[in-house]
């Protein structure tokens, strides 16, 4: 770990100095020809490399969307896998342009780290996974349990708060990498594995016998996950924010990667504005007017991305739930393009 974090920090000390004098993030990105995107070290459904090294997932799609908005090419992205501990330093130091790594939006992160959260692309909450043979049905029965989790996450704090608030003794075993948490939990070192509920479903697939484990019903925290950019570059912040909004708006309007070309001829003024047929919304954020068209053409709308990566038909099998559109009873609500 230390061999990874030290260059990063030296980067903060020296390299960032360079980026101070440099151009804006958008100009930097255009000059190098790709978006450098910080992702997880492998979380199925969110950011996970396949055997050929191609990254897929909900978080990955957002980065591809940003690349499509800037270059019209969803493949103009390079990925940097980061541990939970390294992620903010990597972004602060300019190592990456955008962090899309199932990162919880909290006040301290938003205000003290020199970062901005560009929105929420997955509403999550922390949950617990246990072996079925423990016979536990509620998190409140877990007094005296040993709990495996990742270091450097809000998870570590939430679990401490939860056990303390309920007067339950516990023992925390915190690993650097998610793979080691899974291995230790699988070996029986811990009774409980806790992380964001989406992560529990994803990591359960890596266990020897996924069917022997169950996720408890309690959700003990709010974990709005979203993309992060550096503070102080509003142009780039806008691009990240509106790429996500475009994907959500597109789903609401029924624009998909398949029908986006036909939709350009739509009579609906909202769709016309979104796809750049009317107005000059792209120019206002420093991009071409077909920015949203490129996003949808390149990665699809939010619903498509959700279904392809984490939805009911994938191994994760997560229902839309609170991540449905507001019009379908969920939380997803993007400001209009107008």
């Amino acid at each position: 770990m230390s061999n990874k974090i030290l260059p990063l920090v030296l980067g903060t000390a020296m390299g960032v100095a360079a980026s101070a004098a440099n151009a804006t993030t958008l100009e930097d990105v255009k000059a190098k020809g790709f978006v450098q995107c910080g992702v997880s070290q492998g979380l199925p459904g969110f950011s996970n490399p396949d055997a050929q090294g191609n990254w897929t997932g909900l978080d990955v799609d957002l980065c591809r969307g940003v690349a499509a908005a800037v270059f019209g090419d969803a493949s103009a992205v390079k990925f940097t896998p980061l541990s939970a501990k390294e992620r903010f330093t990597a972004l602060q130091s300019g190592e990456i342009d955008i962090l899309s790594r199932n990162t919880t939006w909290t006040m301290s992160r938003d205000t003290q780290l020199g970062l901005n959260f560009a929105g929420v692309n997955y509403y999550d909450g922390q949950g617990f996974m246990v072996r079925k043979d423990l016979g536990v049905t509620s998190a409140l029965e877990m007094s005296g349990a040993s709990v495996c989790t990742n270091t450097g996450t809000t998870t570590e704090l939430n679990v401490a708060d939860y056990f303390r608030a309920n007067n339950m003794p516990y023992e925390i075993v915190a690993f650097e990498k998610a793979d080691e948490v899974v291995a230790a939990y699988d070996a029986g070192r811990c009774d409980v594995y806790t992380t964001d509920a989406s992560g529990l479903y994803a990591q359960r697939l890596k266990l020897t016998n996924p069917a022997d484990h169950m996720v408890l019903p309690e959700i003990i925290s709010k974990e709005p996950l979203g993309p992060v950019v550096r503070q102080g570059d509003d142009e780039w912040f806008n691009i990240a924010k509106w790429t996500l909004n475009a994907m959500i708006n597109a789903e609401e309007m029924g624009v998909t990667s398949a029908n986006v070309d036909d939709m350009k001829g739509s009579d609906n003024p909202s769709i016309k504005r979104l796809l750049g047929v009317e107005g000059a919304f792209g120019e206002a954020i420093g991009l071409g007017n077909d920015w949203a068209y490129n996003v949808i053409k390149g990665v699809g709308n939010y619903g498509e991305s959700f279904d392809a990566n984490v939805g009911p038909d994938t191994p994760l099998g997560i229902a839309r739930g609170v991540n449905a559109l507001w019009s379908n009873g969920g939380f997803l609500y993007a400001p209009p393009v107008r």
Partner: peptide, 15 residues
């Protein structure tokens, strides 16, 4: 290093 790393992540005080 482990505990320091956790503190680093919670506070962002890398340097």
């Amino acid at each position: 290093v482990s505990v320091g790393g956790t503190v680093l992540n919670q506070t962002g005080q890398a340097i």
